[in-house]
Amino acid sequence: MNIFYPVQAFADWLTYGVFSMHQETLFAQAVNFFIFDTIKIVLLLSVIIFTVSIIRSFIPPEKIRLILSHKYQITGNLLAALFGIITPFCTCSAIPLFLGFIQAGVPLGVTFSFLIASPMINEVAIVLLFGLFGWKISLMYIVSGYMIAVISGVIIGKLNVEHLVENIAVRKMGAPLTVAELSWTMRLHAAKNYTYDIISKILPYVVIGIGIGAWIHGYVPTAFIARYAGGTSWYAVLLATLIGIPLYSNAAGVLPLVSVLTEKGVAIGTTLAFMMAVTGLSLPEFLILKKVMKTKLIIIFAAIVGVGILFTGYLFNYLLG
């Protein structure tokens, strides 16, 4: 049985019962779709963000750094990308994190594996993918994102580009954070607050995204999108990736919209590439990283990840097309 059956029943009751809309009309279907999707996504987000926050409370970045500073290529990259998945990424923390890792002796390539996986594979993107596209596509996304993070890190590690990291001599001040053992009460409390924070932050985008999605779902004919969003044209993946780069902060709102485009004929590989570009290639992050690395290194980093994303997009379009 579909676990979202009660949600669908509630949406049906609200649309066709309480609002007494006619089931056959497009408007009623759009309203029904909107109510169902919004509740489903919020439920999924609450459960997953809460769970990840609990796991995360056991592995703070300080602990990750300690583990990774003893690791070398490949093993380090595999581990770093894994840790990146559970660590939330905030553009404003990119610099202290990057320098903190490098100066503790974490290899450059391993640091990059972490930096790539952290924003690209995050619980919000995964929940939205799962809720809107199902588990197969979210799994494809997680596995390809993980491979991109590991392989890009390994390549950067082999390129010997350490000299492109700005030489910032850090004079240590003060006493560093001592990571205190947390009690379960504190973990649960922090996880609850974090979940509430994140959901209230992204909810407007999600609701607007689902709203537009519901409208397209009901009103815009499939042929229209298939014609203009170029389902199978060769440049679709490239275009999707380029459009995704400046959309960083709106990942939550962009996804529901994309799900409907996919439903109407945009290829899966194109969608995956678009999502990865939205989360993994971020213009504000590049600008911030310029303070700690030469432009050349940022270009190398963006190019390698970009090629990985394009490859993923074309591969899935080819395999599933």
């Binding site: 970045p61 923390s93 320098l99 240590k172 006493a175 560093p176 974090y194």
Partner: peptide, 23 residues
């Protein structure tokens, strides 16, 4: 970066890091 914190925001009391990356 002189305070060696890995996530922001951080709270420092009399040059001791007491909190990092939390709200």
């Amino acid at each position: 970066i002189t305070y060696d914190v890995l996530s922001l925001p951080a709270l420092i009391i009399d040059d001791k890091v007491v909190l990092s990356g939390k709200n």
